[in-house]
């Protein structure tokens, strides 16, 4: 029997992170805080501190981090990974944890679900549209004689996306809408 029991501790967390990223390595962090000092999200989102996330991930206590939604505030600038003297990657830990939360059925911010829905529909996160010019004209790809875009065989593309988990994310959204 363990000397101490923590009810919310995820003992399998290290393996779950490793399954997504080899470079996250929260176990190698010695909290020098170089990552947090260079973190742009830390400057504007109170409580967002990559070194703290590394420690929490190493210990396996990530429940409140996941529930708070704060992990989505990462700007993905990769400064933390680039400056870490121990060659760990807080950004990859963060990205692994957001993946883990989605895998568990927790919905990501709406914008992320919408991007997946758009990719599934047409292959891109935004569809080609009219763009405004300095003369207040609104021009499309066609007007500009740019090559057309879009998926040749959307049905097969969507079957492929299902295999790699797109529908799992969209199902979360659906479940939420039904509540």
């Amino acid at each position: 029997m363990d000397t101490i029991e923590y009810s919310s501790r995820d003992k399998e967390l290290a393996n779950k992170i490793k399954a997504i990223s080899d470079e996250a390595k929260p176990e190698d962090c010695y909290t020098c805080i170089k990552c947090t000092n260079g973190c742009p999200a830390n400057k504007i989102f109170e409580g967002f501190a990559p070194h703290k996330i590394q420690v929490a991930a190493h210990m396996g206590f990530v429940e409140d981090l996941i529930e708070s939604g704060i992990l989505w505030y990462c700007m993905n600038c990769l400064t933390c990974q680039t400056r870490c003297p121990m060659k760990t990657s807080p950004v990859q830990t963060i990205s692994s944890l957001t993946n883990i939360s989605v895998n568990r059925g927790i919905a990501p911010p709406k914008a992320f679900t919408e991007m997946i829905r758009a990719v599934k529909a047409n292959g891109a996160i935004i569809q080609p549209r009219e763009a405004q010019t300095t003369d207040f004209d609104f021009l499309t790809r066609d007007d500009l004689e740019l090559p057309a875009r879009g998926i040749k065989d959307p049905v097969k593309f969507q079957e492929a996306l299902k295999i790699v988990g797109a529908d799992q994310v969209l199902e979360i959204k659906k479940a939420e809408e039904e509540i």
Binding site: I20, W72, C74, N76, I94, S95, S96, T98, N99, V102, P108, F112, T113, M115, I116, V119, I125, A160, L161, I163, V164, G165, A166, Q168, V169
Partner: peptide, 12 residues
């Protein structure tokens, strides 16, 4: 844009 949400879909 999908990488933080669904790693396997990003890789695909």
């Amino acid at each position: 844009p999908i990488k933080t949400t669904k790693h396997s879909m990003w890789a695909f």
